[in-house]
Amino acid sequence: MRFLALVLLFATTLAAADTVYPPQSVYRLQAALTSQSGVQHDLAVYAGHPVLITMFYGTCPAACPLLIDTLRSIERAVPPGQQQRLRVLMISIDPQHDTVESLRELAQTRHIDVSRWTLARADASTVRRIAAVLNVQYRALPDGGFNHSSIITLLSPQGEILAQSTAVAKADAALLQALSAIP
């Protein structure tokens, strides 16, 4: 029995060692996220899947609703088999206003499939680090809004940046190509 426990312990250690990501992987960043369901996650919540990752803020009037539409166009443009594998992670840059409740509300009003999409929030310093690894620029404005670059990043199953797109409301061809090249 004790032997079995030791074997199990050894096996879990091996599994943990397996999650050392490549040096360029954004999953090297320790970042605690909370999802729209109030669940705690790591940035690597969707490791093992191709992921579309983007940053937004809930009260954004123009470009952010378009971001969701753009993510959906990318989903529609990939073959059904690949579509099932693809995951979407949207991280708020506005932890002050984007609470778990408001993220859940946004997911509901935009009919987001939370089995494959996650809306998440993090504390301000974590948000800065995530933005830094994704090269997202943002700045708080005096009226409570933000200026930020609307970038959609495609991550490999290991968390490496494969493509970045600023195309709006349509699927970026280079990003689609990178996506279809994932084995």
Binding site: F56, Y57, C60, A62, A63, C64, L66, L67, R128, A131, A132, N135, V136, Q137, Y138, R139, A140, L141, G145, F146, N147, H148, S149, S150, T166, V168
Partner: peptide
């Protein structure tokens, strides 16, 4: 906040910033 400066490359152009590439009232 080094990444928050959002200064357009060519600052002499004072025309409307691209409102879609940057969510919000555009570059400073």
């Amino acid at each position: 906040d080094y990444a928050g400066m959002l200064v357009a490359g060519d600052n002499r152009q004072q025309s409307d910033p691209d409102a879609l590439r940057f969510c919000g009232p555009g570059a400073l």
